[in-house]
Write a protein that binds this DNA or RNA. Structure first.
Lengths: 234, 234
DNA sequence: GATCGAATTTGCCTTAGATCAAACAGGTGA
DNA sequence: TCACCTGTTTGATCTAAGGCAAATTCGATC
């Protein structure tokens, strides 16, 4: 296996404030792995043997309910940690993580977490800061679900994806991984039919351009207007 | 001010695994305060100067949206921490916390957190474990909002309240603080009208007994059936 | 005990969005 | 090049639950 270099992780916000030598020690204990598109990184209820850092690609985190519904919790972008169940006192993963595209991830055995946390206090502080913002996110989701209607939620979801993984093209801002109507529906608590109708309507108005597993946001500004609830109700 | 005793906090799960002498040191730096019913413990966007432990009473944590909606995030029971924004890298409180009844709380200045975290590792571990379970909770809420219908969500909310703050009476299990239809609506993302209709229907079926700001669950078992989605659709 | 305000109940109507159904691409592999 | 599978579009209903309005009840206060 090629030896891993600290340059892989230097500069990531989770590792901010950590000395170069320490970064080496951290990276030295990681195992790097490739995960092919649509393959799992870890699975719900499984023993949480490792925690992960996404180096390249995009990972979808999904919870399945007993009655067969799937809810997308979040998308992970390069540089983010995932599967940190151990740091929160869990022994199993709370959700499925599947690669949205071919991915490269680093994995550390979970039992290293306590050592890392005490040896590298800024690592632990940064991690808990991230946990804090995920908690914040989750609360925002609850609030959205309680107070906004589907149109606004879908607009918000697209804007979030654009901010997180948007790539500029001549047409507009492309969401940089394959994403289906069904995926968007699972992020927003609606059905693929409704998402399809919304995208069609927005396409007619020139807000977005979309195709099979692909969405390009042409006019983010106007999408923000929709997200805020004063979309043109004629 | 009466001197505070470690017996106040010994035995609480957050302080599990901490030596008696350390408990003294921790309690010694707290300030105890009373909060009258309907008064705030802390407020959204406010500078997070302190974190709190609820000793007695019940606190409702509510988020307000710009457009005037209120969403209840959770109820805090005695023994739980709240306002730990600092531990998660925030400088302001993310929500309003208001006393549902007259309360007694301990408060520590936020700047003590880092010291506490390093001096009492099990305190920090316990706290993050609790954060983990709140994150879990929040995700469960999102899933409920996405996949269940109002009837199930309201049933679930009542069951959660019963588990958390139920007190046995001859009639059934009483939710041990004043709670209005509106409050329940804000917990479940619906309207007080719908909650009222549901409670009326359940009362007719003998599932609950309810009155002004009061709910008694008479038959938890049958409420569980409703919560799981196979309530008697005649 | 009379009064007043807040909480609750209920009926009726409306509607956002789910469900059902069917047709329609656009890639991929043979 | 064609066939096929998966993702998408669009139309036609249907319904859970929200909105509106009005009556009612319960407690607290004077």
């Amino acid at each position: 296996m090629a030896s891993l270099d600290r340059s892989l992780i230097a500069g990531l916000s989770v590792f901010e404030g950590i000395a170069a030598a320490d970064l080496d020690r951290i990276v030295g204990q990681a195992r790097s792995m490739r995960v092919a598109r649509d393959q799992p990184v870890f699975e719900q209820e499984q023993e949480a043997h490792s925690f992960f850092l996404l180096l390249d690609g995009h990972v979808r985190v999904v919870k399945s309910t007993p009655d067969g519904h799937e809810v997308t919790v979040r998308y992970i972008s390069p540089g983010e940690l995932m599967g940190i169940a151990g740091a929160l006192g869990r022994t199993t993963y709370p959700a499925n993580a599947v690669a949205a595209v071919d991915c490269v991830v680093l994995a550390w055995p979970s039992h290293l977490w306590p050592t890392f946390a005490t040896s590298f206090p800024s690592f632990s502080a940064n991690t808990y800061k991230m946990v804090g913002s995920r908690l914040q996110d989750a609360h925002m989701r609850v609030i959205e679900m309680s107070t906004e209607q589907v149109e606004q939620r879908v607009a918000n979801a697209l804007l979030k994806l654009v901010k997180q993984s948007g790539r500029k093209t001549e047409e507009g801002i492309l969401i940089d991984f394959p994403i289906s109507r069904q995926d968007i529906a699972e992020m927003t608590g609606t059905t693929l039919h409704t998402v399809s109708r919304l995208l069609s309507a927005w396409e007619d108005q020139g807000l977005v351009k979309s195709g099979r597993q692909k969405v390009v946001v042409v006019e983010p500004h106007r999408l923000v207007v929709v997200a805020e609830g004063r979309g043109s109700k004629s």
